[in-house]
């Protein structure tokens, strides 16, 4: 797990907290979920349905569908295209996720 990867001296939105796999994580308003996760060195967002291999952020523009996470109970959400907000619940997902809504 690599240390904080936010570039210094960049003005950011106000600080907030999201919950990642049950753990409270700091983020900043305006960040995408992917940016917030990567800033903390969290790489793997999911494990594939077939062979259970880890996947994470690849293209950063919403095309590759590999950064999928479960957000507030809804699976298959692209982390790179979804902004954080206070109290957002993010869960890395196995396969195609669970439907807890």
């Amino acid at each position: 797990m690599s240390p904080e990867a936010r570039i210094p001296n960049v003005p950011r939105g106000r600080a907030l907290t999201i919950v990642v796999d049950g753990v409270r994580v700091s983020a900043f308003e305006g960040e995408s979920i992917a940016a917030a996760l990567l800033a903390e060195g969290r790489r793997a967002t999911r494990w594939t349905a077939g062979s259970g291999e880890p996947r994470g952020y690849l293209c950063g523009m919403g095309l590759c569908q590999d950064c999928l996470v479960t957000v507030d109970g809804a699976p298959n959400v692209r982390a790179c295209m979804t902004p954080v907000r206070e109290g957002l619940r993010v869960e890395s997902q196995r396969g195609f996720g669970e439907w807890s809504q």
């Binding site: 990867a5 940016a35 990567l38 950063g60 523009m61 790179c80």
Partner: peptide
């Protein structure tokens, strides 16, 4: 993807 992260969010 690296560029989007850095330019877009200031994250390495």
């Amino acid at each position: 993807g690296a560029q989007n992260l850095m330019k877009g969010y200031g994250v390495l």
